[in-house]
Design a protein around this nucleic acid. Structure first.
Lengths: 214, 214
DNA sequence: AGAATTTATGTCAGCTCCTGACAGATGACA
DNA sequence: TGTCATCTGTCAGGAGCTGACATAAATTCT
């Protein structure tokens, strides 16, 4: 009953692909949770799903990707929500609204997503290599984010550094919020959104003061 | 004439180690510049230095480390300069002063350092994998930085998120400065310091406004 | 429906990064 | 000089990842 418009019929082939992809993600996450990320080998994952190793690497560029592929989906949603915000809105307000929008979507979606999300955060928090990979994702997100901001502010990225500055500091603040949640093992969406609100308020109070030379 | 106290005599063994370490770094960087990072294999590096592969991995945890080991040294200097700043200084001012201090040191040191620095930035900028590793370094730096800030501000890191916020945004701004330099292939220390100054001024003007809801 | 074409998957062979275990070489120190 | 600690080399092997080619399956065409 999930209807995404402009997609007449997924087709058997496409459905099978989605199924294997999901299977790979789920069993990988479960194995990571059970045995740890490093200790889990790709051979074990593909054996459990009953596909060849080569197939795995056609779906995911590497072992990290399968763990973080979901994050990327959320990032993409965030960006599209942001792009849809009215242009008159000041940058930080638009960013805050976009974050809230994504969490609303997640909350409304099937429990499946929420449980996967919790698993991913759990796995990532307990593994340095994945934390690094997550940094990379944040970095990619930052680039897409700044280009959207530049469009909104109607300036050129190469000559005007303000979109870059705002995007970078915004994501830094978000990162602080997420990490403080992780540090206290608070992964429920309600807790996370609440924390984001707190950190946002704190940032609005702290940063202007700090950067104006106080 | 560089005197680090409490080091009576380096000893032959220690000197040899330093020599191998330096040789590995230099030849690695040169090979990276000549053939590219990915295309350069560890076997080639150790062959050029005439050491076994096993030895390489005893000096560096991985291929990335040899390229970025220098960055880490600068980071350490930055942190120690920061720790030495007077406690009355506001956080951002102390951070700015520490950055300036490190660049002064670099400028005063042998040309060796400067040329290595240029090589490193060149190699890193042209390779995604290294850019990722650099993100990791930035992240480690951030943690050490925030704990120093917390000590300066005399608060607890776990309960007061302000040091984390300030540290994260400060490094974000520095990153913007560095990346804008790299984007224009400006690696001279004078150019970099000048750019840092500009970005700092821009941040002081932009961020307070953005975060106070303008 | 059957043939033709596209596309996903499997197999295999091989490269590179990285590690553990053990043996040999070399500087440190009495 | 001889003992000891430490650095280094060699070997074997596992894990991640890729290219090339063949097979199987789904889509499209006739």
């Amino acid at each position: 009953m999930t209807e995404t418009s402009a997609v007449p019929a997924p087709g058997l082939r496409e459905r099978k692909k989605q199924r294997t992809r999901s299977a790979l993600i789920d069993t990988a996450l479960d194995l990571f949770l059970a045995k740890g990320y490093e200790a889990t080998t790709i051979d074990e994952i593909v054996a459990a799903v009953d596909v060849s190793q080569r197939t795995f690497f056609r779906y995911f560029a590497g072992k990290e990707e399968v763990a973080l592929s979901m994050m990327r989906e959320y990032d993409q949603r965030f960006l599209s929500v942001l792009a849809a915000r009215p242009a008159e809105e000041p940058p930080i307000a638009a960013l805050a609204a976009a974050i809230r929008g994504v969490f609303d979507e997640v909350r409304r979606s099937d429990d499946d997503h929420a449980s996967r999300f919790a698993k991913v955060r759990d796995v990532v928090e307990n593994n340095p290599a994945l934390a690094v990979a997550q940094l990379r994702y944040f970095n990619e997100l930052e680039q897409e984010l700044t280009s959207i901001l530049a469009r909104r502010m109607n300036v050129d990225l190469a000559t005007d550094l303000r979109p870059t500055l705002i995007g970078a500091t915004f994501l830094a603040v978000m990162r602080v919020a997420f990490e403080s949640c992780a540090h206290e093992s608070r992964f429920q969406t309600d807790e996370v959104t609440a924390r984001i609100g707190e950190v946002f308020a704190l940032a609005s109070e702290t940063l202007p003061r700090a950067w104006s030379g106080d």
